[in-house]
Design a protein around this nucleic acid. Structure first.
Lengths: 105, 105
DNA sequence: TGTACTTATGAATAAATGATCATAGATTTA
DNA sequence: TAAATCTATGATCATTTATTCATAAGTACA
């Protein structure tokens, strides 16, 4: 299942490593993974939706969501009282699925 | 390029999310990403090899390496004075490559 | 055994992160 | 405008993480 990697692909600049690390770090949290999973199957959800589905506090959800938005993983649009978040960087879904598929985890 | 995900695959237990987060967190560091990249193309390298290639201090390398070993990403064998580390969880290479392939990064 | 070389470990410190609380801001509707 | 609802923000505290330094531990070989 492990994709063969060409040596060309493996050359990565320091800058790129920092960017990759940045995205990994932004994703590396159970709640944030749950948020990504939700948004992978829902196109967009309000903050309240997410709070209820994950049974977490509004403030905590908002902190996670705005952080992920700031870092480019999510986007948001306001519709009246509600703010709807959606996935912007869909690649993080693949990253999560890749590890989730590991049988040994 | 983004793989379509079946809804079945998206159902993930809290426990699994924690495990995935754990691996992501363990990988989410420029130096550790560099180490994974090195070991993706070298089968195994001694601590000194890694220090020199990445121009980092021995102690720092050792901390990163033993941490990644403890968390199941690397393995190591001693041969005389040297300790050789190698990739155990090769999936992390795919994870890194997945993000590295993002043109917007 | 003593020395050189390689790696590991623990302490200490600084910095980043996560959770909670209180409250502010935005929007709708009565 | 006032009240209700939804979301964002800032402060604070506890925890975790990253780095450095000093030194211990393992190995080979003179």
């Amino acid at each position: 299942m492990t994709t063969p990697i060409s040596s060309a692909e493996l050359n990565m600049s320091i800058e790129k490593m920092e960017k990759v690390a940045f995205i990994l770090k932004t994703t590396a949290h159970p709640t944030r993974i749950a948020i990504v999973q939700l948004l992978a199957q829902h196109e967009s959800l309000s903050v309240n939706d997410i709070c209820e589905r994950l049974t977490i506090e509004q403030s905590l959800a908002s902190h996670h969501l705005s952080g992920m938005k700031l870092k480019g993983i999510l986007s948001s649009t306001r519709e009246g009282k509600h703010v709807f978040y959606s996935l912007k960087m869909r690649e993080v879904v693949d990253v999560i699925q890749c590890l989730a598929a590991c049988t040994f985890l």
